[in-house]
Design a protein around this nucleic acid. Structure first.
Lengths: 212, 212
DNA sequence: CGCGAGCTTGAACATTATCAAGGCAAGTGG
DNA sequence: CCACTTGCCTTGATAATGTTCAAGCTCGCG
């Protein structure tokens, strides 16, 4: 463990700083210690598709440790972020000393594949209403805290961010959230947090197209 | 290599036979030797999202060799298929004898992640026209043969299959293909193959929403 | 040769994107 | 501390796009 500590590099980033650029050469594994960041791809015409929202404990760049060395997406801080990172070489050292790490990496890759497959299914067959509801539930899981009237969710993404994650227009996210608020399922608390009042309703509207 | 040969199981499947069921316990790695198969997820209401089209040399089930043992998707033969497979135990034996296989697996997982990320981006930000065009180009790559007037593509998927892969309605695929045919870019040859006449036009319509 | 599955086509409908205008809120500078 | 400004969000109207439903057609198979 002291061995590990000696080869770690710590870094800090401010909000909106870039941790990694799509297309750049990269050969480090980066672990997020604090804060959150979005991983995204840009089309030539500037449309952004968010692939992941990383927060404490998540890592990225593992793809650059093996074959491919060109990053396939960009990562940008959504709030102040602290990271630690291994270079490719130090990671290989580590791998020799602790070969079971390879299995851990494989397991994490599998989790990520699973997540991507589910997201892909959502984009393909589920309605926008369902996807918005699912997103809020996911955020409640990761970023929610229990309060007397429900779950208070600190949103890592702006409306535009959520739109770019779901693959819809900003305005559509606004409208869908407004709709959920009218139905008494959530309550907006400024632009950065949402109070989830009725989790059951949200789950049912995430599961099966609603109905009205 | 004789060691490997001794632990392989060969199997054959007819068209539409199921190689693996979503939700079932699975602990084998399956390699496709001949034929092609689709991997897909079903929603409760029966809508199908195709995740991959596997053909010679592709494999699946690797996810079941590590942590999770429940398959997250189904695999069904699109035509007669021959496979060979390893059980989890024999695979672990193999892994001990040839540890570099772990790296190979990681690299393949990375490729698949890359593919999923690109597909996700397509579903999120690209128009249906672009996605249809891209799909034909992909098929041309994998299943096309050069002929005097262009590339003859033997389609592994029906119109409905393509629709379920792209996440749109059957009818939409028909219409988009009809459109490409009117523009003289492709020519339908029955329902199972397409002649690609103008690859450049198809590439430009895959890259940037057209225009008219 | 005839039948049926899968494909095409059309028309009406639903949903979402786009464009445009206005509002709220946080931060800035007087 | 207040007015101002700027960025983001909401809301409305309209247009584009895709879905759904309903015929009819075609290809390939028995």
């Amino acid at each position: 463990m002291t061995h590990i500590a000696s080869i770690i590099r710590h870094k800090e980033y401010r909000k909106e700083e870039t941790l990694l650029s799509e297309g750049s050469k990269a050969n480090t594994l980066v672990i997020i210690n604090e804060g959150s960041a979005k991983a995204f791809k840009l089309t030539p015409d500037g449309r952004e598709q968010i692939l992941y929202v990383f927060s404490e404990g998540d890592f990225f760049g593992e793809r650059n440790l093996f074959g491919r060395q060109i990053s396939t997406y960009s990562v940008e801080a959504l709030e102040p972020v602290r990271t630690c990172s291994f270079t490719k070489e130090s990671f290989y050292d580590l791998l020799h000393s602790y070969p079971e790490i390879a299995i851990k990496i494989i397991e994490e890759l599998e989790k990520r594949i699973s997540h991507l497959e589910c997201t892909l299914q959502s984009m393909g067959v589920r309605s926008v209403d369902e996807r918005v509801s699912t997103l809020i539930l996911d955020f409640a899981e990761k970023y929610g805290t229990s309060v007397p009237d429900g779950t208070l969710i600190h949103l890592p993404l702006s409306r535009e961010g959520m739109a770019n994650y779901l693959g819809v227009a900003r305005e559509t996210v606004s409208r869908k959230l407004g709709q959920l608020e009218n139905e008494g399922i959530i309550r907006s608390h400024g632009n950065k947090s949402i109070l989830l009042l009725d989790r059951n309703m949200l789950e049912s509207s995430a599961g099966k197209s609603v109905d009205l």
